[in-house]
Design a binder for these strands. Sequence first.
DNA 1: ATTATCTATAGATCTATAGATAATGC
DNA 2: ATTATCTATAGATCTATAGATAATGC
Lengths: 191, 191
Amino acid sequence: MSSTRTARSEGRRAEILRAAFEVIAERGYRGASLAAVAERVGLTQQGLLHHFPTKEALLVAVLEARDQWDAVPPGHRLRLDLLGSLVEYNAMRPGLVQTFSALLGESVSEGHPAREFFTHRYDAVRESMGEVLRAEYGDRLPGGLTPERAAPLLVAVMDGLQYQWLLDPDGVDMPGAFGDFLDLLGAGDAP
Amino acid sequence: MSSTRTARSEGRRAEILRAAFEVIAERGYRGASLAAVAERVGLTQQGLLHHFPTKEALLVAVLEARDQWDAVPPGHRLRLDLLGSLVEYNAMRPGLVQTFSALLGESVSEGHPAREFFTHRYDAVRESMGEVLRAEYGDRLPGGLTPERAAPLLVAVMDGLQYQWLLDPDGVDMPGAFGDFLDLLGAGDAP
DNA sequence: ATTATCTATAGATCTATAGATAATGC
DNA sequence: ATTATCTATAGATCTATAGATAATGC
């Protein structure tokens, strides 16, 4: 696929993607105009459409870039402490967090072009987190939970903390709070 | 304030607010056009603007209505089991949940008119949840947490679960998962 | 030749203002 | 008299298409 494009074009596409990330972070997908993205890379809106034929195509590319971004490298088994590091890393990149928090928030509305993407993604992430939790804590977690039932909580904490942190970066210690949650899971009364 | 308006006008305003909740749930605030809201109550867009002079004024009214909605009645101390009931209640009102999940998601973008509202609100909610947790579990929670440190986690779980549930209502048992989290908090290894 | 970019523009929206008309309340 | 609603419309946008021109790669 990338072999069908010139290196020149690939570079432009990457520039445009970066700009799209920024503008979506600032204004959401609906609020992000093609003209605003184009201006950021020194193009006209029509020039941008040469590289991404529709606004939705640009969104899809943004979502794919993200997917590639935080995919676990094959062979590398995800571990809980890596997840903590990921949260710490995110806390240094508010723009990235904001882009996807904005998109997640929008995606719940009807017919949003990212809705299906997020639905599938969360399903996969819950399953993946269940495995991580089982590898770390075994079959029994505090409170009588199983890894499968704790997984949606883990995901919810990550997302929910992001919103609180974005709204009040100084008032919310996102990595600290995530660590607290892991402590809660590890406080085991399991036999 | 309501005394300065006629009963007729109050009724209309209430109808418009209801319609605004619906349209915001479906399309977010940015995607919600005044015309779409107006049409739902059988008015023209200009007729609507007689009752709410700007789109932002309508949003503010929506946020205030929500605040009134889930405010704890004075004198009634909030308890954790009531919170569980609230989540169960929410699970029967996807529209309401969707309206505020959409607004929260949008509010993290710069200069969004609901941003300050949510910032203040989350600050207050964390404090309130801290008190609830202290009343329920005392000063020491599992994992060495304090009520104050568990509060953002409780809020994060509620919000995060809402997004997962909105994206996949059949695949995510929101009240069940919330109950699981409370079990985790109550699984105490406190002395 | 092909790719990248531009100008021009169609066709939809969207919010908000101005001012006219209809309905209601003293 | 005041309130509620409408028609008309200004002034901004926004996405996307058509077609011309400039730059690049064989």
